[in-house]
Computed example of a mutant assay.
Amino acid sequence: MYEKDGEKYFVVDSHCHFWDAARENWVEGREQYAKGWIDCFYGYHQLGPPETHWDWEKFLKVSADDFERDMFVEGHVDVAVFQSTYLKEWYAEGFNTIEQNGRLVDRFGDRLIVNGRFDPRDGDAGLRQFEQDHAKYGFTGIKLYTAEWNGDSRGFKLTDPECYRFLEKAQELGVKNVHVHKGPTIWPLDKDAFDVADVDHAATDFQGLNFIVEHVGLPRIEDFCFMAVQEPNVYAGLSVVIGGLMHARPKFFAKVMGELLFWVGEDKMLYGGDYNIWTPKWQVEGLVDWQMPDEEQFSDYPRLTTASKKKILGLNAAKLYDIPVPEECRLPETTAGEPMAPGEELVDDVAGAQA
């Protein structure tokens, strides 16, 4: 929990990892891809404040003690959501598998939520593995990497018929939160495989699922926003937005946050620190302190309130994952009014921004 100026913030980090990029885990003959991947991550790491930078060797693989200190002791995080990313084409035991993540559950208890994953290109065997993983871990969320390599394939779409079979299974099992990496590419993956168009289609067809678009489709922020405002079950995952832009590109950060606040709204934005690309402490503290700049170019964007920041930092994710929130961190209950007509919310937002 983070407290500032008498306000208490319940922090849910909805996007973090516990990866193994150590040399011993690199697939023989594909070392250039394993190294290239983690080197690209390390480049993003440099976008944080200089005092938070690690040396490359530490970045390859952190310990459980490192994770606990960085996240729960110093990082203000109350609950962390592990996102599983396999990459077994380059990492022999996987980069960040559900088994690796699951081993920490006994240590951290209800402070840690482990998400599963699937790859529709694995066919019937993959579907059986997905069911087995769910039976063992009981996850309610998954992470999908549509640009991940699998044999000769260099990506899939959520709209692929085989993917629909897996999404139907997820819905049947009660897995309701689908985190989809749709943002900056990481070498050697293909940027076009991260396009957000397939989310639009799938979100309409699976309205019982919540689609959390990680990294908000960057650099396609306009594409994402104009899609997400139409789909009530599409959410903005702020990993990379905060860690990659708040310190290194403050004006671009303000633009991205402004677009998200105007189109998507503060009720559908989720904080993600993207550990261990970045540590959460400076991100949480920075977002609590941050205000939209006063320059004319930002004048038509909504402003963040304390309540807005509490929602984004934890309350929105807590609602999606049914996480109990301490009473002192909750917001006052509000009474819902009449349903809005299509476009009414945007009209109200414009009026508020111009007032």
Rank of each mutant, 00 (worst) to 15 (best):
E7R: 04
E7S: 08
K8H: 10
Y9R: 03
V11E: 02
V11I: 12
D13M: 01
H15S: 09
C16G: 09
C16L: 14
C16Q: 08
H17K: 07
H17G: 01
F18H: 00
D20C: 06
D20F: 03
R23M: 12
E24H: 09
E28F: 13
G29P: 06
R30F: 13
Y33L: 14
Y33W: 14
W37N: 11
W37R: 04
I38V: 15
Q46F: 14
Q46C: 13
L47I: 08
L47N: 07
L47M: 12
G48T: 01
P50W: 04
H53W: 15
W54A: 12
D55G: 09
K58E: 13
L60Q: 00
K61W: 06
K61Q: 12
K61P: 02
V62N: 08
V62E: 08
D65E: 15
D66I: 03
D66A: 04
F67L: 14
F67P: 00
R69W: 09
D70P: 05
F72R: 05
V73I: 14
V73W: 10
G75L: 08
H76Y: 14
V77T: 08
V77P: 06
D78S: 15
V79Q: 06
V79A: 02
A80R: 04
A80M: 10
V81Q: 01
V81W: 05
F82I: 09
Y86F: 13
L87N: 02
E89T: 12
Y91M: 11
A92G: 10
G94E: 03
F95P: 05
F95W: 13
N96D: 15
N101G: 15
N101S: 14
N101A: 15
G102R: 02
L104N: 01
L104W: 01
L104V: 09
R107I: 12
G109P: 05
G109F: 08
R111Y: 00
R111K: 13
L112Q: 02
V114N: 01
R117N: 15
F118D: 05
F118C: 01
F118K: 02
D119F: 00
G123Y: 07
D124H: 13
D124P: 10
A125P: 06
A125E: 15
L127T: 04
R128N: 13
R128T: 13
F130D: 03
H134F: 12
A135K: 11
K136E: 14
G138M: 07
F139R: 04
G141T: 06
G141C: 01
